[in-house]
Design a protein around this nucleic acid. Structure first.
Length: 274
DNA sequence: CTAACTCCCTGATAGC
DNA sequence: TGCTATCAGGGAGTTA
């Protein structure tokens, strides 16, 4: 699934195509997504309204609509949001289509259907509850060495699993957690509570650098991610360790190892990362 | 409480 | 080449 950089690239690509456009009609495939389709709200609060803006929180996209409505997408593992011309051919796994007043159609496509859409009034507690226990964004100045040191205090879980916890910091998934720890020369299995403030400062800085670079490069396309125009990203070409077990470390030449942490594939250089 | 495991679903691919 | 077992970028719920 898309992690923070991919979701941000989608947001930026989509915005000029949908901002201030009116949603003329909503169509739904009737296939169940991770959460039930909010039929009444979709036809009552979304259809016929205008898209004012798209925001991102972690891996969620928030469409601000007229009528103080917020339509929230999560793309799961394989979700895609695009806005092609309305007459372009539909694709397998297109589940939601929003016909716009500029001849385009906002489309949600999701093969595995781990994604979902929710519709709330901005004032409704459910809209806020979704993010109530989220940690800071990686680009938030609050995401710093002191914060991480405190959050990790006493934790025995691996630093990699810790970084992938949305309550600690939002939007870092398996690919970028691996890359951040490689850049920070930290072994992914290190218990989070054992790292020093210096370690955390490096991890916070490398997080921002890597995520920023990935956004600039259009995200990472591993198998099926694509941006709002249906194009691939390029950051995967610069991945140092993710998916590269058995290959040589780009820094020291040692063989990159693979290890499962909390059920997730983890890749690291046994010599650079300690 | 914490942390790890399981499951949702389809498709790509590693490995035989 | 062709089949099939495994694995996949997330996250919620369950188990230990």
């Amino acid at each position: 699934m898309p992690e923070l950089p991919e979701v941000e690239v989608i947001r930026q690509g989509l915005l000029p195509l949908v901002k201030n456009r009116r949603i003329l009609a909503v169509s739904y495939s009737n296939k169940r997504l991770r959460k039930p389709f909010p039929r009444a709200r979709m036809y009552g609060r979304v259809e016929k309204n205008f898209i004012l803006d798209i925001e991102r929180r972690g891996r969620y996209l928030l469409f601000r609509l007229t009528g103080k409505t917020v339509m929230i997408f999560h793309l799961g593992m394989t979700g895609k949001l695009t806005a092609p011309p309305a007459d372009s051919p539909r694709r397998r796994h297109d589940h939601l289509r929003f016909l716009l007043d500029n001849g385009r159609e906002l489309r949600f496509n999701d093969a595995r259907r781990f994604g979902f859409v929710e519709v709330w009034g901005e004032e409704e507690p459910e809209a806020l509850a979704l993010f109530a226990d989220f940690g800071p964004e990686p680009f938030d100045p609050a995401f710093d060495a002191q914060y991480l040191l405190s959050a990790a205090h006493g934790k025995t879980q691996s630093v990699k699993t810790f970084l992938m916890d949305n309550r600690v910091v939002t939007g870092i998934g398996n690919i970028y957690a691996n890359e951040i720890l490689f850049a920070s020369r930290t072994h992914p299995a290190t218990p989070a509570g054992r790292l020093s403030k210096l370690d955390w400062g490096l991890i916070a800085r490398q997080s921002r650098m890597i995520l920023e670079k990935a956004i600039q490069m259009g995200g990472s396309t591993i198998s099926d991610y694509e941006n709002a125009d249906g194009k691939s990203g390029y950051f995967q070409l610069t991945l140092a360790v993710y998916g590269r077990h058995g290959e040589s470390c780009p820094v020291c030449g040692s063989t990159i190892a693979r290890l499962a942490l909390a059920g997730r594939a983890s890749f690291f250089c046994p010599d650079c990362q300690r």
